[in-house]
Design a protein around this nucleic acid. Structure first.
Lengths: 253, 253
DNA sequence: CGATAGGTTGAGTCGCATCAACCGGGGTGG
DNA sequence: CCACCCCGGTTGATGCGACTCAACCTATCG
């Protein structure tokens, strides 16, 4: 069940029960990958659309000088490939961070879906716009913020994105990234991430142990990181509570 | 006439004469703006799709600390707004660099186009994928490259994008960016851009005077900048010469 | 003519990289 | 069982790339 995809799209458009049913059928033949594996490599020819049903992954590019830049984080419910038609060759790779469950959606299947539900198309479009907005914000993050702001900003973004799909528990969420991976995502070194993390802890803004991130002071962290959540377009998130109610109601029916 | 849009889309899909005719009709009521003006501001509600018919513009975000990050350059033929439906509030602003001629396309008009030509839809999708790829590469650029590489990379990208729409003249093209604007695009200061530019000139890789950029040694610059053009997906660019022939043929008919 | 925008240059400072050593825990194999 | 290894994290010393501040230069324009 692509439960996280449904939850996310639900914040982008008013899905009907039929829409949800259509999305449910997606996850028929899931594919499993272990942690630190490649889902697809730069140069590969993407044949179908992959959706992350469960687990974390990331887009990255390797440079000639040997360094690696992580350009995006893919969370449960995120679409892997630059969807719809067109891309002949991947210009970047996608790797897993944790164990990942993937749904493969063929092109024909996708077309079928889009003809059956315009609302799903709308929600997918919105999702794509948000993904672009996040990418722009990452450019801002590495271009214009110092280490402490960058790391704090990343934490804020991850936390809010996970909360959107109800994978945050109060003020905590998972964070299965090593310091090396944070460094590669933020254009810093792991040594400096380490020191910066200590600074954030000393300021009592976050705590991070056993891959569990706790936001001790979310407003404080947002301010310290120059984080403004607008770009995530979570505007409809108050609907979350409503759909949570509906979901519960169904569960108890 | 959205000649540059047509040229660009022509490298992404095989457009028919009818497709071109449809695109021609877009530019009916153009809007004109002077240099250094805002096309749309963060927080605005975008009502229609803007296409740049002529001139240069850029997407940017301003931070609380007063600094500005330019997150994308918009060249002739580029689409301004995160198109199709959806976005309620702009999460960034768009400003002009030069005088700009814009085409406003209403939502209904856009739908009409997409129903009439699936090939245009395909080309627009491809264009969107390339725009995303460029955004990712900008993240890599500011995250993982030193000043000289960043600036050289920017020059390579601009040159190839302009050549794609045949706005490059041999090894030269326009570059209407001030050093402050280059700095804001690359996450550097204008002082450092100045010194880096001198370094590039001393290495006899580029020359830049009167807003005219000349690539003295494109392969050399690409190598020095770790530039790999794959992400621009210019694969079909050999078609350029063919369509140029067609265009000339028509011009002389 | 002064005013302004863009570009140039130098000196001093700082954030982050680099290099290197070391620690602790979990897994493996003898 | 312990010895070993390896990965992720930690810490210190040093150096460099880019920032900051400031002065000055040049072209353009009202």
């Amino acid at each position: 069940m692509p439960i996280y995809l449904i939850r996310k799209l639900d914040t982008f458009a008013l899905l009907s029960d039929e829409d949800r049913q259509i999305l449910q059928e997606l996850a028929s033949k899931p594919r499993y990958l272990g942690p630190r594996q490649n889902i697809i490599r730069e140069g590969d020819n993407p044949e179908h659309l992959n959706v992350i049903l469960e687990g974390w992954a990331f887009r990255y590019k390797c440079l000639k000088n040997g360094r690696r830049q992580i350009v995006a984080l893919l969370l449960p419910g995120d679409l892997c490939d630059c969807h719809i038609n067109g891309m002949r060759r991947m210009d970047h790779s996608i790797g897993t961070l944790t164990s990942v469950r993937l749904a493969k959606i063929s092109r024909s299947r996708l077309e079928e879906i889009t003809t059956r539900s315009p609302r799903i198309v709308q929600a997918l479009n919105m999702d794509m716009l948000v993904a672009s907005a996040i990418q722009r914000e990452w450019t801002v993050n590495v271009g214009n913020r110092v280490a402490l702001e960058r790391l704090g900003h990343l934490f804020c973004e991850i936390f809010l994105r996970l909360r959107q799909i109800r994978l945050a528990d109060g003020t905590s969420c998972a964070l299965p990234l090593t310091q090396v991976e944070m460094a590669d995502a933020l254009g810093l070194t792991s040594v400096h991430i380490n020191r910066t993390l200590h600074a954030l802890r000393n300021m009592e803004l976050v705590s991070l142990k056993n891959r569990q991130l706790t936001m001790l002071d979310l407003p404080g962290l947002q301010q310290a990181s120059l984080f403004i959540p607008d770009y995530l377009h979570l505007g409809l998130c108050e609907r979350q509570s409503r759909s949570a109610d509906t979901e519960n109601a169904l569960a108890f029916a």
